[in-house]
């Protein structure tokens, strides 16, 4: 990935972080921590990797993205708005009655959302199904999924992991947003899911460990995943929960609480940028 692309993605990422803060402040509820930790991953997918067209969200040959950690809906909505699937102003309707932007992703309501998620563990399983369909139809679209580290405590994740390698789904690439925190505390204290890399490897996946905020590393891992044959790839991305907003970083309390107006103003000032 060249420097110009990295700079473009950095700009997108900053804009997406601003959107996340703005929409959560407007909705007065939602999940900032796990949205901010995944911004580089999601922006790289939407602005460098995925073959998608905002004018034709259901294009059969498109790449798919399943946000298995559905509570991070704001990062997905920010990417979709930035990509042009709907106007940016829509973001301010997040979680409000009648909005197309539900608290968790809803494929029936939001253009560009490929799977309804929110109940943890289910998205990766649907992604496996999509990848199976791609293989069956001999299409070369790719399926991407994003899981949380806490999410890996769900037994269903491992059912899906087993099936993906059993069916040799090399058209499936998953990211694990390894930010280390879940609602009740550090993942290792609540219910230790580690060692994660070894577990995914043991389940037959190619595993790549990266810094989840490094565009070059994310892109490199995606390229490796694209070249891997006969098995799915799990990219374990070390991230910082709440990344980019000093008072949210690594704070469990910012998993599912929205910033108030004052906090939002501070966050936006820290992030800088802004199109206006």
């Amino acid at each position: 990935m060249n420097q110009a692309k990295v700079e473009e993605l950095s700009g997108r990422a900053r804009e997406m972080r601003r959107m996340i803060i703005e929409m959560l402040a407007a909705s007065k509820s939602g999940h900032p921590g796990g949205s901010l930790s995944a911004v580089e991953i999601v922006s790289t997918l939407y602005f460098a990797a995925m073959n998608i067209d905002p004018a034709d969200p259901h294009k059969p040959d498109r790449d798919r993205f399943v946000l298995s950690k559905g509570h991070a809906a704001p990062v997905l909505y920010a990417a979709l708005a930035e990509k042009g699937f709907f106007p940016r102003e829509e973001l301010l309707t997040l979680r409000k009655t009648g909005s197309q932007l539900q608290g968790h992703p809803d494929m029936k309501k939001t253009p560009g959302v490929d799977m309804s998620t929110g109940s943890l563990g289910q998205g990766i399983s649907a992604a496996v199904g999509m990848a199976l369909a791609g293989k069956l139809d001999k299409k070369d679209y790719r399926v991407y999924a994003l899981l949380g580290d806490g999410e890996c405590e769900e037994g269903m994740v491992w059912e899906a992991a087993m099936a993906a390698s059993h069916y040799k789904l090399d058209n499936l690439t998953a990211f694990l947003d390894y930010n280390g925190l879940q609602i009740d505390g550090p993942v290792q204290e609540v219910m230790n899911p580690t060692p994660l890399a070894e577990k995914w490897q043991a389940f037959g996946w190619e595993v790549i460990k990266i810094d989840g905020h490094d565009f070059g590393a994310i892109w490199g891992a995606l390229e490796m995943a694209g070249e891997t044959k006969g098995k799915p790839t799990m990219i374990i991305a070390r991230t910082v929960k709440g990344k980019g907003v000093s008072f949210m970083e690594n704070q469990v309390g910012w998993h599912g609480n929205a910033p108030n107006a004052e906090q939002a103003a501070q966050a936006l000032a820290e992030l800088g940028g802004g199109k206006s």
Binding site: P60, R64, V66, M107, D114, M115, G121, Q122, I124, S125, A126, A127, V128, G129, M130, A131, L132, A133, G134, D137, G155, M156, E159, A160, M162, A163
Partner: peptide
């Protein structure tokens, strides 16, 4: 669980 999840994904893909 995965039986239903995979079915959902297959349906989402047509």
């Amino acid at each position: 669980a995965n039986l239903m999840g995979m079915s959902a994904g297959l349906a989402a893909a047509g």
